[in-house]
Design a protein around this nucleic acid. Structure first.
Length: 971
RNA sequence: GCCCUGAUGGUGGAAUGGUAGACACGAGGGACUUAAAAUCCCUUGGCCAUAACGGCUGUACGGGUUCGAGUCCCGUUCUGGGCACCA
């Protein structure tokens, strides 16, 4: 009976077996070392998986399988990030509950994933939208609500400790992360009523309700976090975003700025992601200086990183949103200031980002420079941001380009402070040079305690240090570290998200008792905001949610006869994805997020695989969330993800046909005139003078690379059925192509199911890895897949003879066999460790060819070989493993260990295809001369085998390493 | 503007400072076949040359270090990504 590589049968068989045997089920095992592999869980979209999705899953699956073969207890779970906007919008459109469509999509995803043969432990699956999961999202939120951050210890602590401190000492003597600096005494605190105390505590809680400027997106009807706004428009949908002051739930992520920054040094992430996060956190060390407003007792604080330029200040600027604006504005300037504020408010965030023209207005007031004693005008201008530093700056036009532009526009003086700096055309922003004019003359520097500041002759860096010292010593200000990182806005005005476990008792936000969690998402009839503008949850029959929630309400309101309103906001997308890796450790626990035992065993994720687009979103929030849980003792490691690999995107080939405007005529691309439109920055196409529009056509309608399959095109959509097709002279219709992100709307999606159908999952897995470095984005190109398929067929034949019988035997392997095998072991092991799977694939191909030529039959070679390929092509490996007589699965085999001795024994490396060239590799003393090396190699018995009857026509010696002999038969 | 990546054949991409272009795709040629498919073999960076041997050149560009540079250093030009009136 001939035994072909029948992948369909093999894959079906092993999927079933793995299921029956629970091959991938994992439990805590103290005897074994743990290894935690994790993929960023997918959002189950209606479009299903395309070939880009599995790229990361395959890479991590290879690693997980490899680690398992090395004897580790590997946790490799999968789940779904099930809350999201598309499901909600689908619900609004169709009226179908988002849960229904989400679960359908999940089923479809699961079906597709199962075909590819992953080693996921599906018993641990999580879905963020199920109550038993979001129970712990709500719980964590409540814990954050009940915590504050101690700056000194850099740690979260229970809010009760802070309250106790307030009761005894007020704000004195405790440095705590807060929204704004507050000062009050114990007497004041104790005199306040519950509402006032609650409001004050919001200033300190890690999850708090704050009146903040938020990114409001009218079209989506919700607020957005900073990372959800890209170029001034919403990331989803691309709608305009405006700034609006609203009361929202926030997470005090900024409290953890320094720890988030420091932690980056302890994890193995790519430099680019670390850099992105560093930028996002945006630490800057500077100085705060107190400025008093002339002829008043108003004082304000400015922040600068260039304390050395105090002598060059010629004006001050306040952000338009600053509370000081109102205070300092003089009666004479009031009207102009009001008008300017009105103008600023009318501008959207996007306009402000794109348009950098200089605007501003004089407030009428003057500030006193404490160093020089100069009176400098105070301006109000939108180039100063309220949210950063103190919302007020000192302007040094000579050494800051923005200040320079402003000074030139308003005719303000420019005082250069660096030797040789030419500021006639532009400012000198560089932090290099020798300071001068600081002060210009002795009387230009104010004396404090008998000391005046003089920076002349110092380098800029020295001058900054000296000014900091001076300012601190004489109490004019303080050294201060600022972070760009903002607190995360945590509420959304949507339906399809986690409900907040919060109700309002006499207007005070109050947590629903912990033992009543989870608060379930109520049913609503409509998924849109209510008529009164409340979020969609306002449509719910308030207290008629379900039995559990009635219990919640009963219990929460036990002392009251009134019914209190419950929070109508829901949590944002990142809520459910922030701690899911902990839940996988113990997914069915209904007593805790994760048990002490499971958390202690699994610790944190060793290898995390996902896209780099989450650098400033999920990957920041998750780190924050984990650090908080670490402070609570729940999470056992400060950092959640030890190593991170960012897989690139697989792009699709978009194909275009060209329809002549206003007709049903489609013209071949090569018959068109292409003109570049400068204004629109794109190409325009013309056919006999009439413009033709490019129209997406499905990739399935493309044949021979760039031709349209007219029959398929007509059949694809009804509107093309009667199309008039204009082909070129050869009778072909040429399409135009572009490489773009895979998307349903671009009709360029390649579905992994089709590949599995045609070539099998093993070929798909191998090919996706072969496509190129894992971290790189690359277009999908089916052309190369045949090569991988051919390889697998060839690999298969190593194990079977022509009659289809298993051909391996117990013979002793030759030196060449062992060398080929161990070369492969070394290469594949190193590649997997380094995540450069793409270079392992060729190594397999070479080894297969070599062993095939050597007619290797020894099971001492073929068995380890099957183990080596198991992480990549598990189905083939299992089948071969079984064929060789094993009763256990290949998953329980042992990863072969490379042994140097096999390389030495067979020193002569014989190219498979002998092109008159032999290469010898030996290690020599560094001092060995080329001649000595040559002599040693030619004299070696291994070489003699190849040199017999041959004549050496050329010798190439590379010192220390390689000897090449070009030989030909002696005539 | 600042920060981070990268630049190698027709294509994807290999090369601990040591034969540049592994492996694959594509292309060309051949074998088998009535034919097709499948399979197998050969050639394939460029230029020059040949009956044959061969020679020169070559990793974005310009320098440098080294016995030796795709790799290390300096400068330049582009590609991709991040941040951006952040003081």
């Amino acid at each position: 009976m001939a035994r072909d590589y029948n992948f369909q049968e093999i894959e079906r068989k092993w999927h079933q077996k793995w299921n029956e045997l629970h091959t991938y089920k994992v439990t805590e095992d103290e005897e074994k070392k743990k290894f935690y592999v994790l993929n960023m869980f997918p959002y189950p979209s209606g479009a299903g998986l395309h070939v880009g999705h599995p790229l990361g899953y395959i890479a991590s699956d290879i690693y997980a399988r490899y680690k398992r073969l090395q004897g580790f207890n590997v946790l490799n779970p999968m789940g779904y990030d099930a809350y999201g906007l598309p499901a909600e919008q689908h619900a609004i459109k169709t009226g179908q509950h988002p849960e229904i469509s989400t679960f359908q999509n999940i089923d479809h995803y699961r079906e597709q994933l199962d075909k590819i043969g992953f080693s996921f432990d599906w018993d641990r699956e999580v879905r963020t939208c199920t109550p038993d999961y979001y129970h712990w999202t709500q719980w964590a939120f409540q814990k954050m609500f009940g915590s504050f951050f101690c700056n000194k210890e850099q740690k979260a602590k229970p809010i009760e400790a802070l309250v106790a401190h307030f009761e005894k000492e007020g704000t004195a003597g405790w440095d705590v992360a807060c929204t704004e600096e507050m000062q009050f005494t114990a007497e004041e605190w104790n005199s306040w009523d519950e509402k006032k105390q609650s409001d004050v505590l919001m200033n300190y809680r890690l999850a708090f309700m704050g009146e903040t400027m938020v990114n409001w997106c009218p079209q989506l009807g919700t607020v957005l976090a900073n990372d959800e706004v890209v170029n001034g428009v919403s990331e989803r949908g691309g709608y305009p975003v405006e700034q609006k002051k609203m009361r929202q739930w926030c997470l005090r992520v900024s409290a953890y700025s320094q720890r988030l920054l420091d932690g980056l040094d302890t994890i193995q992430w790519s430099d680019s992601i670390k850099e992105t996060q560093k930028n996002w956190i945006g630490r800057s060390e500077g100085t705060e200086v107190e400025i008093s407003v002339a002829d008043s007792d108003i004082r304000f604080t400015i922040f600068t990183t260039r304390a050395d330029t105090m002598f060059g200040v010629t004006f001050f600027v306040l952000a338009p949103e600053s509370e000081l604006v109102d205070q300092v504005t003089t009666a004479g300037q009031r009207a102009q200031v009001d008008e300017y504020i009105k103008y600023v408010k009318s501008r959207t965030e996007r306009e402000r980002m794109i348009d950098h023209t200089v605007t501003g207005v004089f407030s009428g007031a003057y500030g006193i420079n404490p160093i020089t004693g100069d009176r400098c005008p105070i301006y109000i201008a939108e180039y100063v941001l309220a949210g950063y530093g103190t919302g007020a700056i000192m302007a040094v036009p000579a050494h800051d380009s923005r200040d320079y532009a402003f000074a030139r526009h308003f005719g303000l003086p420019v005082i250069p402070l660096v030797e040789g700096a030419d500021v006639s055309e532009e400012s000198y922003d560089a932090k290099e040079g020798i300071v001068t004019n600081s002060p210009v003359s002795k009387d230009k520097s104010v004396e404090y305690d008998g000391e005046t500041l003089c920076l002349n002759g110092l380098s800029i860096k020295e001058a900054i240090r000296e000014t900091k010292r001076f300012v601190s010593a004489h109490n004019l200000g303080r050294v201060k570290v600022n972070y760009r990182l903002r607190d995360a806005i945590f509420s959304r005005q949507r339906y399809w998200g986690e409900p907040f476990p919060v109700y309002y008792r006499h207007g005070i936000p109050t947590m629903i008792p912990e033992d009543c969690l989870p608060v379930k998402l109520p049913e609503v009839e409509k998924f849109l905001p209510t008529a009164t503008g409340e979020p969609p949850l306002g449509n719910a029959q308030m207290w008629a949610w379900d039995e559990v929630n009635r219990k919640v309400v009963d219990k929460a309101l036990i002392d009251d006869s009134t019914v209190f309103p419950i929070e109508l906001y829901t949590m944002p997308g990142f809520a459910g994805s922030s701690a899911y890796y902990l839940r996988y450790m113990d997914p069915k626990n209904d007593k805790a997020l994760v048990s002490e035992k499971a958390a202690s065993y699994w610790q944190n994720v060793d290898l995390y695989v996902g896209g780099s687009e989450h650098a400033t979103g999920h990957l920041i929030y998750s780190r924050f969330w984990n650090k908080f849980l670490f402070d609570l003792g729940i999470s056992k490691k400060e950092e959640p993800f030890q190593k991170l690999i960012n897989q690139g995107m697989i792009q699709g080939w978009s194909s275009f046909v060209f329809r002549v405007k206003g007709t049903q005529t489609y013209v071949s691309y090569d018959l068109l005139d292409v003109q570049y439109d400068d204004a629109a920055k794109k190409n325009r196409f013309f056919y006999q003078g009439t413009e033709a529009d490019p129209i997406y056509t499905d990739i399935s309608t493309v044949k021979n690379g760039n031709q349209l399959d007219v029959d398929k095109f007509r059949a694809w959509m009804p509107e093309f059925k009667e199309a008039r097709i204009v082909t070129n002279e050869a009778g072909h219709y040429i399409i135009s192509q572009a490489i773009e992100k895979m998307s349903k709307s671009k009709y360029n999606v390649v579905n992994p199911d089709d590949i599995c159908e045609r070539y099998g999952a093993d070929t798909l897995r191998l090919y996706e890895m072969f496509l190129g470095p894992i971290e790189q984005s690359k277009p999908w190109d089916v052309a190369g897949i045949d090569g991988c398929f051919r390889f697998l067929k060839k690999f298969w034949t190593l194990y079977f003879d022509k009659e289809g019988n298993v051909s391996c035997d117990d013979s002793e392997p030759t030196a060449d066999n062992m060398k080929s095998l161990h070369k492969l072991i070394r290469k594949v092991t190193a590649d997997i460790e380094a995540f450069s799977y793409n270079t392992s694939v060729p190594a397999f191909m070479v080894a297969t060819t070599e062993l095939s030529q050597q007619k290797c039959r020894s099971r001492k070679v073929l068995e380890p070989l099957a183990v080596l390929i198991a992480p990549f092509c598990p189905h083939v490996a299992e089948e071969l493993w079984e064929a060789m007589g094993h009763t256990t699965t290949v998953c329980d085999a042992t990863w072969p260990v490379f042994e140097e001795k096999y390389m030495v024994e067979s020193m002569v490396k014989m190219p498979v295809q002998f092109n008159g060239k032999v290469r010898f590799t030996m290690t020599f003393e560094a001092s060995a001369t080329p001649d000595a090396i040559l002599e040693a190699v030619i004299g070696a018995p291994e070489a003699a085998r190849y040199l017999e009857g041959m004549e050496v026509v050329k010798k190439i010696v590379v010192p220390g390493r390689i000897v090449n002999l070009v030989i030909k038969p002696k005539n």
